[in-house]
């Protein structure tokens, strides 16, 4: 035990933290997309596991084809929105439950992503040969760039969801029956929200592929879980820090911060030399715990079990 503790170098942890922060920021951008579907539309959209990789694939292939990196990112957003559109139409036009529609699109995207990458499972894009938006080669710059993009996105979302259209979208997720009665085409709103969300997810995938220097067919695996983790950690931390002063802008910002915190924890876990193959198990447990917190807190206030305990006491 003593040997294990003394083998942990604090310096090494500090060296690895910035990398964790930059990756967390990129995942945090994806979490913004997931926030739109999970919290605003009240849909768990599983398309994202596919559209994250799609964003990476499109970005890398276009950069390799000579496109400027920023234009490749915009194209990735457009293709991601198409993926969301597919899920939305499967759900609204064909009556397939939202969660299944997402799974179907995600499944199909695997083949499509392979085709985008010319039937290769991964494609490298070297920062030495191409001008990239950000790269793990220069972590401080990557953090700055990703942070700027995050704050810009948070601000755009804050504005959009405060407009007439954005508020109609939120109403659709909150009370569909009322929304219809007020003349809102809720099918349109769902399709719009899913497209928007997957556009942002693809953007994040495009950033990640540049950061790590390659796109991989499996890079989006588990993205939904990481996104949910970020959303939930952000809510809990934001709520605890700002209490009732939290507004929508901060809620969105804390979603990104949730992504950073998630990744910092991952870095610490790896630093403790836990087996990295256990990471997914670890993540699932963390997400399950955070998802359970609101329910358990509610139960502590009012529960049958409380009466059972009380009853046992008064009988005694």
């Amino acid at each position: 035990m003593a040997a294990y503790v003394s083998s942990l170098s604090l310096l090494k942890l500090l060296r690895n933290l910035p990398g964790g922060v930059s990756q967390g920021l990129i995942w945090g951008i994806m979490a913004l997309g997931i926030y739109v579907t999970f919290r605003l539309l009240d849909v768990a959209d599983l398309t994202v596991d596919g559209s994250f990789a799609t964003g990476g694939a499109v970005t890398v292939m276009l950069i390799l084809a000579g496109w400027p990196a920023w234009a490749a990112l915009l194209a990735a957003v457009a293709v991601g929105m198409l993926a969301g559109l597919c899920t939305g139409l499967l759900h609204t036009r064909f009556g397939i439950p939202a969660i299944l529609s997402g799974i179907l699109t995600q499944f199909a995207l695997y083949s499509i992503n392979l085709r985008i990458m010319g039937m290769a499972a991964n494609k490298a894009v070297s920062v030495d040969k191409y001008q990239l938006v950000l790269s793990s080669r220069n972590v401080p710059m990557a953090i700055l760039t990703a942070a700027l993009i995050s704050v810009a996105l948070v601000t755009v979302f804050y504005w959009y969801f405060g407009t007439e259209q954005g508020s109609a979208l939120r109403a659709t997720g909150n009370n569909p029956a009322m929304s219809r009665a007020l003349g809102i085409n809720i099918d349109h709103m769902k399709v719009l929200g899913l497209s928007l969300s997957n556009g942002v997810v693809a953007l994040s995938g495009g950033l990640m592929s540049q950061y790590q220097g390659f796109a991989d067919i499996n890079m989006g695996r588990g993205a939904i879980v990481i996104g949910l983790a970020a959303v939930i950690i952000g809510e809990v931390i934001g709520g605890a820090l700002l209490k009732k002063y939290i507004n929508f802008w901060f809620t969105l910002l804390f979603t990104v911060i949730g992504g950073i915190l998630y990744y910092v924890v991952i870095v610490i876990v790896l630093w403790l030399r836990l087996n990295s193959n256990d990471l997914k198990l670890f993540t699932a447990i963390v997400v399950a715990l955070f998802l359970a917190v609101p329910y358990l807190r509610e139960r502590r206030i009012s529960s049958f079990a409380k009466f059972k305990r009380k009853g046992a006491k008064s009988d005694a």
Binding site: T163, E164, Q165, S167, A168, R170, A171, N174, N175, M178, S179, L182, G183, I184
Partner: peptide, 21 residues
């Protein structure tokens, strides 16, 4: 809509059947 503010609910209703831009 329970998770939306009172004024947001009213604003949604104020635009009943209108184009929402």
């Amino acid at each position: 809509a329970p998770n939306m503010q009172l004024e947001e609910n009213l604003a949604l209703a104020k635009r009943r059947g209108q184009k929402r831009g």
